[in-house]
């Protein structure tokens, strides 16, 4: 079964006087429990592809399927519902809601989903432990380091056990040691929970962890190789 299927996606942006082809007839299948790195230089189209998979952005043409549901024709409300139930996000920065504590940030999604308070508390504390942040649950984002913040973001992304986690340059603001820790965490989660990871990055160290490496250039997939993860 495929977790994600993209068929012939096209997306063009206008920047100044220039048309930029962010996606140029992109087709890709991502298997369940996959661990995929999308790598491309800046403007290569990886973020656009990621956003299209997450239903954050609509392609101009083509089809996007997530868990055997076609999402490129869904309404905003349906997309929101889908993201809430089946997709976790980790962004490059500004991942957390600054007025909420670590634990509240994690519980936020569950709360929106309507999970009862007791279950929320249990799950959020468990997941904080899993990402190695026990004891920091009452800190606000401003009181945590960049790595800690990203861990909270990961915890939030996986707390409701989504089938798919999309991460866009999750290590861009982290030093190498912290990056490694984060990627190790991703790998473990992938292994233990069979969660599909799609990570957009241009960080070589991150690519090492991928089971499958997809290279993009100017909106096209130029390379798609399976590799032994680090």
């Amino acid at each position: 079964m495929t977790a994600v299927r993209c068929v012939d996606l096209c997306k063009t942006y206008r920047q100044g006087d220039e048309d930029i082809k962010a996606l140029d007839h992109v087709s890709i299948d991502i298997e369940e429990a996959g661990f995929v790195c999308l790598s491309a230089p800046s403007g290569g189209g990886k973020t656009t592809l990621l956003n299209a998979i997450g239903g954050l952005d609509m392609p101009d043409s083509g089809e996007v399927w997530v868990a055997d549901r076609r999402i490129d024709q869904m309404s905003k409300g349906e997309l929101a519902e889908l993201r809430l139930s089946s997709i976790g996000f980790v962004f490059q920065a500004y991942n957390l809601i600054p007025v909420l504590t670590a634990r509240e940030n994690i519980e936020f999604v569950m709360q929106v989903q309507g999970v009862p308070a007791k279950q929320r508390a249990e799950q959020s504390l468990a997941i904080l432990e899993e990402v190695g942040l026990s004891g920091l649950e009452d800190r606000r984002p401003a009181e945590m380091s960049g790595g800690q913040q990203q861990r909270v973001a990961v915890a939030r992304a996986i707390v409701s056990r989504p089938a798919l986690v999309l991460a866009d340059e999750p290590t861009a603001n982290l030093d190498s040691k912290t990056s490694d820790e984060l990627m190790t965490l991703f790998t473990e989660l992938n292994r233990h929970h069979n969660t599909t990871f799609v990570i957009a990055t241009h960080d070589q160290r991150v690519m090492r962890y991928a089971k499958r490496l997809v290279r993009m250039l100017d909106g096209r997939i130029v390379d798609d190789i399976a590799q032994d993860a680090a």
């Binding site: 409300g77 139930s85 962004f91 999604v109 929106v112």
Partner: peptide, 16 residues
């Protein structure tokens, strides 16, 4: 604005 975008990305509905 960014935080609003984040909440939307996480699956909060515009009505929320």
């Amino acid at each position: 604005v960014r935080e609003i975008g984040l909440m939307l990305a996480l699956g909060m509905k515009p009505s929320n």
